[in-house]
């Protein structure tokens, strides 16, 4: 600090410092240009296409006449049905991920020694870094009517006929819960691992039972992790295209497939663009609503817990 002040008072060094300051800011320029050129502009392009139409069979798009007709066309009954199913799969999937991941993350963060934590963390990461598509194919093999699970269940007499789960909505539900589970476990683990365990002991010593301690100490402290995990799971889940393609069939389609279909098969870029924009807006709206609700819940909980936490914080600071 003292050195810094001394540098600032010397006129010669000041220009040097300013030059350094300026040039460091410039380091962010390449990525900004890159992302604007390959992320913002392309999105602007499909936004532009979405106001056009598909003039003939062999042309993908045209912006000669501008209208909102593609949005009207996009929200067809079939699209709305698929959109509703996508929303249902995403909401149920996010909640299931949270319910499965929370005890796992709690176990990893509080019940294991640091050495074991590293090992289990690696075990969670290995499937996560296995190819998404290949993992989903693993479920396709498992769930298929002629697969080992189906035959095993029949041999045990638990089922009369072959398994009929593949290419249905439950198969997609299972697939997405599986595929996005690590994205829920990791932020929860990060939040719980940072928790000061003596707070739990203190709460217990002060007479709270296990449930009470969980509700009033663990849960509020895990809240940022819960919010991050729900966001990390929900957003990609809404746009998932691989899982329903592998496991969904005709009954379990999701919006991502409809968007892709307009670009791949129908070659109707105008309509596909409108669908993509709707999907993007729906996700942004959900995230904004979720953030507002989370802030509200946080402030309510914060008001209730303020006494406990302010008493705990100096102790935590001293320990670190």
């Amino acid at each position: 600090m003292a050195v810094d002040a001394a540098v600032r008072t010397a006129p010669a060094a000041r220009t040097g410092g300013r030059r350094l300051r300026w040039s460091i800011g410039m380091l962010a320029l390449p990525i900004s240009v890159w992302l604007v050129f390959f992320f913002i502009v392309p999105f602007g392009l499909i936004l532009w296409y979405s106001f056009g139409d598909k003039p003939s069979l062999y042309v993908t798009h045209s912006n000669d006449v501008l209208s909102l007709d593609r949005y009207v066309e996009a929200v067809s009954p079939a699209f709305l049905q698929t959109f509703g199913r996508t929303l249902e799969i995403s909401v149920v999937g996010t909640i299931l991920c949270l319910l499965i991941a929370f005890p796992m993350a709690y176990w990893m963060a509080t019940k294991l020694s640091p050495r074991r934590q590293g090992l289990v963390l690696a075990l969670v990461l290995i499937p996560y870094w296995t190819n998404f598509l290949v993992r989903t194919i693993g479920w396709q093999i498992t769930l298929s009517p002629e697969g080992f699970l189906s035959e095993g269940l029949q041999a045990l007499g638990l089922r009369d006929g072959p398994l009929e789960v593949l290419y249905t909505m439950p198969a997609v539900q299972l697939g997405v819960v599986y595929n996005y589970l690590p994205l829920m476990i990791l932020p929860l683990y990060v939040a719980l691992e940072r928790m000061d365990h003596r707070l739990l002991e203190a709460s217990r010593d002060l007479g709270a039972n296990a449930f009470e301690s969980f509700r009033r100490v663990t849960l509020p402290l895990a809240l940022p992790g819960i919010a991050a995990g729900m966001l990390l799971v929900f957003v990609p889940l809404m746009g998932d295209y691989i899982t329903p393609s592998v496991l969904g069939g005709a009954q379990g389609g999701m919006v991502g497939q409809m968007v892709a279909g307009q670009f791949n098969r129908a070659q109707n870029w105008a309509l596909g663009s409108a669908m993509a924009v709707i999907l993007m807006l729906a996700i942004l709206a959900t995230v904004v609503i979720f953030a507002l609700v989370a802030r509200l819940v946080g402030s309510v909980l914060g008001r209730v817990q303020r006494v406990d936490l302010s008493a705990a914080l100096p102790q935590q600071g001293g320990a670190r």
Binding site: G239, G256, V259, F263, G272, A276, L284
Partner: peptide
């Protein structure tokens, strides 16, 4: 937060 599919199309 952009779904890959939107990015792709």
């Amino acid at each position: 937060v952009t779904p890959e599919i939107v990015n792709a199309v």
